[in-house]
C-alpha cells in the first residue's frame, strides 16, 4: 500500500509551509522540517507555541489551514486505517476506561493490530511482556481508575507502543511525573529507539528532558521554528555566548556576547562612573532557549545583540 511505496530514503515526516489559523489567530506560520527514520526529535517551545497543534495535524486528528504534510509518505488528513496501524501515540489519559482492568485494556487495544501482523513483524506486542517492560506486571489486574498518575502514564506508553509503531508521537509525556517515574519513562523511550528503531517525535517544555532524549531539537516559538539542530549543535551555539551583568550609576545592565573578554575591556575602558557588581556567566541552554523564544515572540531579532536595561 501507500505506506510501503515510501522508500527508506524518504523522511518519515516531511512538513513544508505548514500553517494553522484559528479565526484570525495564526498558530503556525509556515513550518518546514523533516524527521528521518530512527530519529528521536523533540519539539520544544513555550505553552501556546503550537506544539500540540503540530502533533495533532501529524496524527491526522486536525485539519491544517495550508501547507504540505507527509507522514510515512501519506497525507494524514486522507490516511486510512492501515496507515493508522503504523502510528503510535501516547495520549494523556484522564478518566477513560477507568473501570477496565489494566491487562484487559492493553490486550483489547492490542487486538486491533492483529490483522496487520506479518511474519517478520508480528503484532501486537505480547501483553504480559509489555506490562513487564513498563513495570505494571503486579498491577495487571487492577482497575485503571485506581492507578497513580505515574502508573497510568506508563499504561499510556504501553498502549502507545502495543501495535509496534514505526512512528511514535509523545505529547508532553512526562507532565506531572515525579523524578523517578520520569527516569523510568526515559529508559523506555531509549529502549524503543534503540531496539525497535522506532522514529519518535515528542513535545515538551522541559529542557532537561529534551537534552536526555533527543537526537535533534526543534524549537518552536511564535508559530515558527526558530532553531533546528542536535543538542550538541545547540549547546555549541550556546557555549559561544556569555552573559555580562554590571551596574553603573545605580542602573543595572545585562549583555550577551560571544567575546566576553573583548567586551569587558571596552566596558572597563569606557569613560563614566565606575562599573560595579560585575558578573560574567557562561550562558546555559536554558538562557539561550529563553532568549531565542523571547526574541521571536516580541520580534526583537537576534539575541546576540539584545541588551536590556533592568530597572
Amino acid at each position: 500500500m501507500l505506506v510501503e511505496i515510501a522508500g527508506e530514503a524518504d523522511p518519515v515526516i516531511r512538513v513544508r509551509g505548514l500553517r494553522m489559523r484559528y479565526g484570525s489567530t495564526d498558530v503556525l506560520r509556515g513550518l518546514d522540517f523533516d524527521v528521518r527514520a530512527g530519529e528521536v526529535v523533540t519539539l520544544l517551545g513555550p505553552n501556546g507555541a503550537g506544539k500540540s497543534t503540530t502533533i495533532e495535524i501529524l496524527e491526522g486528528f486536525r485539519e491544517r489551514s495550508a501547507g504540505e504534510v507527509r507522514v510515512l509518505g501519506v497525507d494524514p488528513a486522507r490516511a486510512d486505517e492501515r496507515w493508522r496501524s503504523e502510528i503510535g501515540m501516547v495520549l494523556q489519559s484522564w478518566r477513560d476506561h477507568g473501570k477496565w482492568r489494566v491487562r484487559e485494556l492493553l490486550a483489547h487495544l492490542g487486538a486491533y493490530y492483529a490483522r496487520y501482523s506479518t511474519p517478520d513483524r508480528p503484532r501486537p506486542l505480547d501483553t504480559d511482556q509489555l506490562l513487564d517492560t513498563v513495570g505494571l506486571t503486579e498491577l495487571a489486574g487492577r482497575r485503571v481508575a485506581t492507578l497513580s498518575g505515574g502508573q497510568r502514564r506508563r499504561l499510556d506508553v504501553a498502549i502507545g507502543i502495543v501495535g509496534r509503531p514505526r512512528l511514535l508521537f509523545l505529547d508532553e509525556p512526562t507532565a506531572g511525573f515525579d523524578p523517578e517515574a520520569r527516569r523510568d519513562f526515559h529508559d523506555v523511550v531509549h529502549r524503543l529507539a534503540d531496539d525497535e528503531a522506532t522514529t519518535i517525535l515528542l513535545t515538551t517544555h522541559d529542557l532537561a528532558e529534551a537534552d536526555r532524549l533527543a537526537d535533534r531539537v526543534l524549537i518552536l516559538a511564535g508559530g515558527r521554528i526558530v532553531a533546528d539542530g542536535s543538542v550538541d549543535q545547540l549547546a555549541r551555539r550556546v557555549a559561544r555566548l556569555s552573559e555580562v551583568r554590571w551596574s553603573r550609576d545605580g542602573q543595572r545592565f545585562v549583555h550577551s556576547t560571544a567575546d566576553a573578554a573583548g567586551f569587558l575591556r571596552e566596558l572597563l575602558a569606557s569613560p563614566g562612573p565606575d562599573v560595579e557588581e560585575l558578573e560574567v556567566h557562561r550562558t546555559s541552554l536554558e538562557d539561550t532557549y529563553m532568549e531565542l523564544v523571547r526574541g521571536h515572540e516580541n520580534g526583537t531579532g537576534a539575541p546576540e545583540k539584545a541588551v536590556e536595561v533592568v530597572a
Binding site: E59, F61, E81, R82, R84, S85, M89, L91, Q92, S93, W94, R95, D96, H97, G98, L109, Y112, Y113, R115, Y116, I159, G163
Partner: peptide, 17 residues
C-alpha cells in the same frame, strides 16, 4: 461521557477503533 473523558479518542487512535 466517553467523548468527554477521552475513551472515544483512545479508540480512535487504534486502527478500526
Amino acid at each position: 461521557t466517553e467523548r468527554e473523558d477521552g475513551t472515544l479518542l483512545r479508540a480512535k487512535a487504534v486502527p478500526g477503533g
